[in-house]
Amino acid sequence: MTAASIAGSGSVPSDQVAVHEPAGKVTVIDLDGLPEVDFGDSEDDLTRRGILRSDVNACGPTLAGHETISPIFVDDRLVLLWVGDPVRTPEGVAAGTPLTEVRRRYPAARYLDAPQETIRFDGLLARDGDRAYLFLHDGRTVRKVIAGYADWAQRAFDEGHSPC
C-alpha cells in the first residue's frame, strides 16, 4: 500500500480556535491519531481491540464508529488517516474550511501543486517533525484532510493515491 510524506517546514500551531463546529458529534484528529487509534498501531492490534473492521461494504478496512475515516496501512502499521467532515484538526480545520483560514491557522504550511492535466486536488502540507496534515483543496476550500507520517503523506500526494 502506498501513502505519502508531507514535506513542509515549520510546526503546527496549537493555540487556534475551531473554524466551524458541524452539527452532531465532532471527532478531532491530531498528529498522534485519534483517542483510541495511534499512528504506528498494527492492523492486528486494532482488529483484536475491535477498532478495525473489514466486514463492512467499503473499499478497505474501516474504523468502528468512524464512517468518514479511512485508515492506510503500510507493512501492517497505520501510517495515514484520510478523514472527512465532521472530523477536524485541533485547530478547527475540516473538509469545507476556506483555504484562507487554513493558511491563517497553519502559516508555515507548504503549497503542493497537483500535476497538470490530472483531476487531482492541489495540497497544502503542514508538517510538525515526522508527522503532518495534508489538506487537499480546490483553490478555495479544503476537500479532504489527511493526517499521519509526513513521508507517507508526501508520497501519497506525489503518487496520487487514495484510500481505495
Rank of each mutant, 00 (worst) to 15 (best):
D75R: 15
V79S: 03
Y106K: 02
V102I: 08
P107M: 08
P86H: 01
P98G: 00
G84Q: 13
D76H: 13
R105S: 06
P71H: 09
D75F: 14
D75M: 15
P90C: 06
P90H: 02
I72P: 05
L80V: 12
G92R: 06
V74C: 11
E67M: 13
V102Q: 07
V93F: 03
P90F: 04
V93C: 03
A94S: 13
V102C: 06
E101H: 10
R104C: 05
G84M: 10
R104Y: 08
V102P: 02
R110I: 13
F73S: 02
L81P: 03
A64P: 08
I72C: 09
T68D: 13
H66K: 12
P90I: 04
L63I: 10
L78C: 03
D76S: 14
W82A: 10
G84E: 12
R105P: 07
T68G: 07
E67V: 15
T100P: 02
R110V: 15
P107V: 09
T97L: 03
I72H: 11
G65I: 00
Y111N: 13
E101P: 03
L78W: 03
D85Y: 11
P98Q: 06
R104M: 08
T97Y: 00
V74I: 14
E67K: 15
V87T: 14
T89I: 03
V102E: 03
D113E: 14
R104H: 12
P71W: 07
T100W: 06
V93Q: 07
L78K: 05
G92K: 00
A95F: 06
A64D: 12
Y106L: 12
I69E: 01
A109F: 01
P90Y: 04
G84L: 11
L63C: 00
H66S: 09
L99R: 07
L99Q: 04
A94G: 10
I72A: 12
V74Y: 14
T68E: 14
P98K: 08
P107Q: 08
G84I: 08
V87S: 11
T97H: 04
V79W: 02
D113M: 11
T68P: 05
R77G: 07
P90N: 04
V87F: 00
V74E: 15
D85L: 12
R77N: 11
G96I: 02
R105A: 10
D75G: 11
W82H: 11
L80W: 07
D75T: 14
V83G: 09
L81K: 02
R110G: 06
G92Y: 00
W82K: 09
L78F: 05
D113K: 14
W82N: 08
R88T: 14
T89D: 05
L99E: 01
R105V: 05
T100S: 13
A95V: 12
P107E: 06
L99K: 07
L80E: 15
A108N: 13
E101L: 05
E67R: 15
R77E: 13
I69N: 01
P98N: 06
P71A: 10
E101D: 13
V93D: 05
V87K: 01
P71N: 06
G96Y: 04
G92P: 00
T100N: 10
R77K: 15
V93H: 02
